[in-house]
Nucleic acid binder design. Sequence first.
DNA 1: AGTGCTACCTGGAAGC
DNA 2: TGCTTCCAGGTAGCAC
Length: 286
Amino acid sequence: MPELPEVEVVRRGLAAHAVGRTVAGVEVLHPRAVRRHTPGPADFAARLEGRTPTAALRRGKYMWLALDDGSMLLAHLGMSGQMLVQPQGKPDEKHLRVRLPLSDGNELRFVDQRTFGHLMVDVPGERADVPASVDHIALDPLDAEFVPEAFVRALRARDTEVKRALLDQSLISGVGNIYADEALWRSGLHGRRGTRGLTRAQATELLGHVRDVMTEALAVGGTTFDGLYVNVNGESGYFARGLNAYGREDRPCGRCASPIVRESFMNRSSFSCPSCQRPPRRSRTA
DNA sequence: AGTGCTACCTGGAAGC
DNA sequence: TGCTTCCAGGTAGCAC
C-alpha cells in the first residue's frame, strides 16, 4: 500500500530511468487506468507520444513527470499500483494497464491489480510546477515549503477526530492508514481523540512522529529498487519491520506489552495499544 | 463551508 | 475439496 515513502522511491526511479527519454508509443490496455483523463484513452495517447520528461516530481502520494511541452504525466498508485521500467519485449505482467515504450529501448509500465490507481495528462494549475489535479492536495511533511506551525494551527482548528485529520490529504498529504497508526502509537494518542482537544505540544509531537516514521520508511524503502527495476510494492521492505501498531492485533505492545487491538474506523482497520493510547472517554460528537 | 459516508476494484485468506 | 464471504484501503463525489 503505497504511502509517501513508497511513492518517493518510485519518483526517484523515474528521475533516473524515465527523465530525458522520449515517449515512443502509448498503449492503454485497460481504460480504467486513465479514467481521470476525461477526453479518453486516445487523447491520452496523443498527448504523450513524442513528449520527453524533463523532471520527476511529487506531492504527497501524487507524482508526475514534467513534459517538454509544459504538460504533465500525473500518476497515482492507489492501493496496488506499480511503475516499472522494463526492457521492451519482456513478457507482460498479469495486471499491466498502460505501456509507454521509451526511446532508450526500455518501457515504462503501469501495473495495477485493484485499479484504484490512475494516470492522466494534466496541465499546470495555480502554480506552474504543480498539476491542476493536485491543487487541492496539501503540502506533505517532507516538502521544503511545509510549515510545521501552520499545520499545527490548522489541525487544532479542525473539529474532527485526529486520525481522520491525518488521512485528510487537503490538510497534510502523504499519510495513509499505516503511517497514521504508527505515528499515533508513537504519540500515545488514540485516533478517535478530537483535534480540538490537542494541545499545541501534542500536535507538534504528533507531526514530528509522522515525519520520523516516513523518513525511516523511506530509508528502508530506498533499498528496494536497483538497476532498471523501479518497484513499489507494499509487501516489501518497510512492511516486515519497524511497525509497532499496524497489523499487530493481539501481539504485545512494544512499550507496555498489552495486546494491540484492532478497531473498525472509516471502513478500514485501526490498530492501537489499549493501554498507551487511551480512547476518549466519550465520543467527540456526543 | 465543513464534515462524513460510500462506491470503486481484485484476489488471497478465512469460513463453512 | 470447493464454494462463498470477508477484507485490504485512497480518493472523488455526493449527502447532510
